[in-house]
């Protein structure tokens, strides 16, 4: 398919942003600068970016506990995100949310979610809302392989199928739910096979191939926007880090991890774009330099930002 040059470059830039952001979060967390827990998206960059690049700013996403990648892919600002991770007043959500709860409705980001699978009915409701308001908006719902075993998945996809809702369900199958290998607790190989029960297409794509993800998402978004209903896209991928930072990796064979890192999503994509003349080596370096500078500025913004006043804990409960 013919993908516009600016889209191809945007995909490259946003994947790089996620890679650098998550690498930095890893270091900052290890250094004890960030409170709480962080769940990193390293290795899965092509999924979030491939899907969001096929969407408009006004379209919606719902995200997960491993949400940094989705927020960046949808256009989130790394400084406001980092400030939120630091628990600062200038964070996207004034320090009330943290790593697992970033929302920014102005970019259609309806929230990362700390409850596995909880974003699925919320995304479905946003799809119902878009349909009822005839707004033409589409919703991408990100969730993991573990979430696909929750009741929310079944209830929501059944309703989305029945009502032809404009939702793209994006399952990030990284093989493990925390420390449990999914093949031990799921009979079927492909989660996408479940789509047949809901009367929607089920598509399996290589989640480490940004172009493949983009093409699948483009078709699904187009279907959704033209009123033809939802799609389930299963992206086969792998997280490079453990479930959360600090967790010992006792459950994954090292050779499996090494094999997935070897077929990581960004380097081959960079090579492809240079080979096809979409960007030059110099342009690729310039984009990366720009991303790192933006991240450096974002970290500085977060560090120098004020903490929320303790009393602000009492604000924002009621509308």
């Amino acid at each position: 398919m013919d993908i516009p040059r600016e889209t191809l470059l945007l995909i490259y830039e946003r994947m790089l942003k996620i890679r650098h952001f998550e690498d930095r979060v890893k270091d900052l967390f290890a250094a004890g600068e960030l409170p709480g827990f962080v769940h990193l998206y390293l290795g899965e960059e092509a999924v979030a970016v491939g899907v969001c690049a096929a969407m408009k700013d006004s379209d919606y996403i719902t995200s997960t506990h491993r949400g940094h990648g989705h927020i960046i892919a949808k256009g989130g600002d790394m400084g406001c995100m980092m400030a939120e991770l630091y628990g600062k007043a200038t964070g996207y959500n004034k320090g009330k949310g943290g790593s697992m709860h970033i929302a920014y409705p102005e970019l259609g980001i309806l929230g990362a979610n700390g409850i596995v699978s909880a974003g699925i009915p919320i995304a479905t409701g946003a799809g119902m809302s878009a349909m009822l308001r005839k707004s033409g908006q589409v919703v991408a719902c990100f969730f993991g392989d573990g979430a696909s075993n929750e009741g929310t998945f079944h209830e929501s996809l059944n309703i989305a199928g029945a009502f032809n809702l404009p939702v793209v369900y994006v399952c990030e199958n990284n093989l493990y739910a925390v420390g449990t290998r999914q093949s031990q607790v799921r009979k079927i190989e492909d989660i996408a096979d479940r789509a047949v029960s809901y009367g929607m297409p089920g598509v399996v794509v290589d989640g480490n191939d940004a172009v493949a993800v983009y093409e699948a998402a483009f078709e699904a978004v187009d279907r959704a926007r033209s009123g033809e209903g939802p799609t389930l896209i299963e992206c086969k991928t792998y997280r490079w880090r453990t479930h959360f930072e600090g967790e010992p990796d006792t459950y994954r064979p090292p050779e499996e991890l090494a094999a997935w890192i070897k077929r990581e999503p960004i380097a081959p994509y960079r090579k492809l774009l240079i080979e096809q003349g979409v960007m030059s080596e110099a342009e690729a370096q310039a984009i990366e330099k720009k991303v790192v500078a933006e991240l450096d500025a974002g970290v500085e913004y977060a560090r120098s930002s004020p903490l929320p006043t303790p009393e602000s804990a009492m604000a924002d409960l009621w509308a």
Binding site: Y60, T62, P105, L110, A118, I120, P121, I122, A123, T124, G125, A126, G127, M128, S129, A130, L132, R133, G151, T152, H154, E155, S156, N158, I159
Partner: peptide, 13 residues
């Protein structure tokens, strides 16, 4: 669970 959850998504939008 599904249709109440959808209410959350719809109310937010």
């Amino acid at each position: 669970l599904g249709y109440v959850g959808m209410g959350v998504g719809a109310a937010a939008t």
